[in-house]
């Protein structure tokens, strides 16, 4: 398993990515991954069946063990594909900006339940807000809400 800290997707020509089942993939890699899946599944299922037929006399047990080896073949297909291809996604770890926090607080204020006041929060919630540095953001939003009715 690779241990490099932040492998990023290699730049691809425009339109090279496909959005499939909730995330982006590279078409050619997806095709190879599906090919590996077919091989892993068949090798795990029928390879396991052949091995256990030679080892066990009970046909029912051979049938059960072929399912286990098939599942292991599926996991192996996933691992091999994962080792061949890096994720087609970019990862950012930028700290949340103050503007983003303020926008969320404004969204809360605009919701049917409103923002409420810090006095209505439990001591634990207020401590959490304090330690996350969010108390001033909520105080400011409360002030704005009061001033604008």
């Amino acid at each position: 398993m690779r241990s490099d800290p932040a492998p990023q997707a290699q730049p691809e020509p425009a339109g090279e990515y496909l959005f499939v089942w909730g995330d982006t993939v590279v078409g050619r890699r997806l095709l190879i991954g599906v090919g590996i899946a077919v091989l892993g599944a068949l090798a795990g299922l029928y390879g396991g069946q052949a091995v256990f037929t030679a080892l066990l006399a009970d046909a029912k047990l051979v049938h059960v063990w072929s399912l286990i080896t098939g599942i292991l073949g599926s996991v192996a297909a996933g691992i091999v594909t994962g080792m061949l291809f890096r994720p087609a996604r970019t990862v950012t770890q930028d700290a949340t900006g103050a503007a983003r926090s303020a926008a969320v607080v404004q969204e809360m204020a605009a919701s049917p339940q409103g923002l409420g006041t810090l006095e209505q929060a439990s001591p634990l919630s207020r401590r959490e807000l304090d330690e996350a540095g969010l108390t001033p953001v909520f105080e400011e939003a409360q002030r704005t809400e009061r001033e604008h009715g």
């Binding site: 398993m1 690779r2 800290p5 932040a6 492998p7 499939v20 089942w21 909730g22 995330d23 982006t24 993939v25 590279v26 890699r29 997806l30 190879i32 991954g33 599906v34 590996i36 899946a37 077919v38 892993g40 599944a41 068949l42 795990g44 299922l45 399912l67 098939g70 599942i71 073949g73 599926s74 996991v75 297909a77 996933g78 691992i79 091999v80 594909t81 994962g82 291809f85 890096r86 994720p87 087609a88 996604r89 990862v91």
Partner: peptide, 18 residues
């Protein structure tokens, strides 16, 4: 960072076949 979507699809495709 390390588990590609292609790998997840491959594992589930294989599971369906098996």
């Amino acid at each position: 960072r390390h588990v590609s979507h292609e790998a997840i699809i491959a594992a589930f495709t294989a599971l369906v076949i098996v």
